[in-house]
């Protein structure tokens, strides 16, 4: 219990903690039975508000769900459960999956680059594979990048979206992958920018669907940014980046 942490049980129970504060609290939860118990109880109370909000869903939903579960493999019971609330870690591990798949698609081992990758389910693996395959011939470029001696991997997250970039300054290339990137509004696109002290250089428009993008990167790039732009993209960003990925750790 103790300290300031105990005051955060309520906020945590209703997913009202974000960022470092949540990470810190989860760290505390792992070793404080008292707070863990209180979180369980407060979730149960909050759950009653969920029950109270019950609403009839569209009738066709059931068929779709039953069809999907019939084709979805369950996680093995022995697997370490994903700790509740570690959204970022979870999303990141999905990216790890996709990187692992990318590597296997292009025929290289990834362990040296990314360490151990674990997938959440066969379905996710299949989806990842599909997306990487959509990346098509860029696969070879990705492989070169993953092989580069100075290849580095960076993550950023914003809201529920997570971005990963594999960068090689030596090759002047970057692979950019997103996960749960919200779709751009109608008539808009997301555009990726290399940012340095002089300004921003377009690295291309993201095609959506979280398809990985490989692009040339100016040598003095310090950040990658994603903005929302009018359809077709812009010469220079017209909005502030909603996601920024710093290349200088």
């Amino acid at each position: 219990m103790s300290n300031e942490m105990a005051g955060l049980t309520g906020a945590y129970a209703v997913d009202a903690l974000t960022g470092p504060e949540r990470a810190e609290f989860e760290h505390h939860l792992a070793e404080c039975g008292e707070c863990a118990q209180e979180v369980r109880e407060l979730r149960e109370a909050a759950g009653m508000l969920g029950v109270a909000a019950a609403e009839e869903p569209p009738a066709e939903l059931k068929g779709r769900v039953l069809h999907e579960i019939a084709h979805t493999r369950q996680e093995p019971p022995t697997a370490q459960p994903v700790p509740i609330g570690t959204r970022k870690a979870r999303a990141t591990s999905r990216l790890a999956t996709r990187l692992a798949v990318a590597a296997s698609v292009v025929g290289i081992g990834l362990a040296a680059v990314f360490g151990v990758a674990a997938w959440q389910s066969q379905q996710e693996l299949d989806q990842a594979q599909q997306r990487i395959e959509q990346a098509g011939e860029r696969g070879a470029e990705m492989a070169r990048l993953l092989h580069a001696p100075d290849a580095r991997i960076m993550h950023a997250s914003e809201g529920g979206a997570v971005a990963t970039a594999i960068v090689s300054a030596e090759l002047g290339k970057v692979v950019f992958m997103s996960e749960h990137m919200p779709a751009a509004p109608e008539d808009k696109v997301h555009q990726l920018w290399a940012i340095n002290e002089q300004g921003a250089t377009s690295m291309g428009v993201l095609t959506g669907g979280d398809v990985p993008v490989t692009a040339d990167m100016p040598g003095d790039t310090t950040k990658l940014g994603v903005t929302t732009e009018p359809a077709g993209g812009s010469q220079q960003p017209t909005t502030d980046p909603f996601m920024l990925l710093s290349l200088r750790a």
Binding site: G10, L42, E44
Partner: peptide, 19 residues
């Protein structure tokens, strides 16, 4: 708000008799 949030959930828990 952080404190009220927790107090409110505790009160709700106690009133509902859950937990």
């Amino acid at each position: 708000v952080k404190t009220r949030l927790r107090d409110g959930l505790i009160r709700l828990r106690d009133c509902l008799g859950v937990g």
